[in-house]
Write a protein that binds this DNA or RNA. Structure first.
Lengths: 151, 151
DNA sequence: TTCATTATCTGCGTTGATGCAGATATCAGC
DNA sequence: GCTGATATCTGCATCAACGCAGATAATGAA
């Protein structure tokens, strides 16, 4: 923490994270979803199908609240319920690929703006950034778990 | 968009953003605030004092809702109201430095986890990351404005 | 079959965030 | 000192998200 190159990083990082979170909130609102709902859609898209219970764990909600969450997402056509043939108590939830929702449209501005930022990078820089993102993602998930457990 | 080095970046980036947003949500909940409230605290901390109206614009809330937002933050001891001596209609809102709230504690896990990620980086890599964060932050804010205007 | 366990859903109530419209205080120009 | 504009606040109503506890359905083992 005492390295001089980390000092500026520290100053820049918090506003950066803040902007990303705010962007998430604005995106959710634009699509007519709550922040948690939007997160859930993303999680399902990245991790593939998942049971209701697993989704509850990921989001930190109760199973009851998760049922309602899935209801909302289903109404929006973002998600589909599939009963697990192996264990019919379970409900598998999977992201709908071709959702005609404006989610894609809502993300377009960010794609464009960030695309411009990345376009100016050399391949070597892109490599550095990519590796960082790869490593930071599980770090955040670790932190999330710690936060929840600490309460 | 067709550069080969950008392909992997694209796959890694969305889950990365997702994790950051979720971390923001979890942090807010741990502190007993709503996501918007937490964002507002950050904005005030980074940008310094700000009028109620400016904060309304930043958050995308109505002025009425912003008044309540400031009320909540004040109750949590995170923020202070100061009437503008130059224009006494205005209320300047400023972040309280030594808030005894658990906000710092809630951010600790992330600091630790991310600190480890950054610690493994060379100064050159840190420089690349720092510059990226610096450029990405306004890019997100641009995207946010576009999203809001498009609705 | 019967019982305990597990996964999800439902009914009910609560809480909190927000919008809207009108109230209040202040400012700026005449 | 008026008058219109501006900044914030307040009252009221609404709506959505959530927790909790009990209901339902399916599984697995005795």
């Amino acid at each position: 923490m005492s390295r001089p190159d980390l000092a500026k990083l520290g100053a820049v990082y918090a506003p950066y994270l803040n902007a990303i979170v705010l962007h998430g909130l604005a995106t959710a609102q634009a699509v007519g979803l709550g922040p948690t709902d939007l997160y859930a859609v993303g999680t399902l898209a990245f991790n593939g199908r998942m049971t209701s219970g697993e989704l509850a764990a990921k989001t930190g909600l109760t199973t009851g609240a998760t049922t309602r969450l899935i209801d909302r997402l289903e109404e929006h056509g973002l998600v589909r319920r599939v009963t697990d043939p192996a264990d019919r108590r379970r409900v598998l939830v999977e992201a709908v690929e071709d959702n005609d929702i404006e989610l894609d449209a809502a993300l377009a501005p960010a794609r464009e703006q960030l695309g411009a930022v990345f376009a100016d990078c050399s391949p070597a820089e892109i490599a550095v950034l990519t590796e960082h993102f790869e490593r930071a993602t599980p770090a955040f998930h670790e932190a999330i778990e710690t936060i929840r457990d600490t309460r």
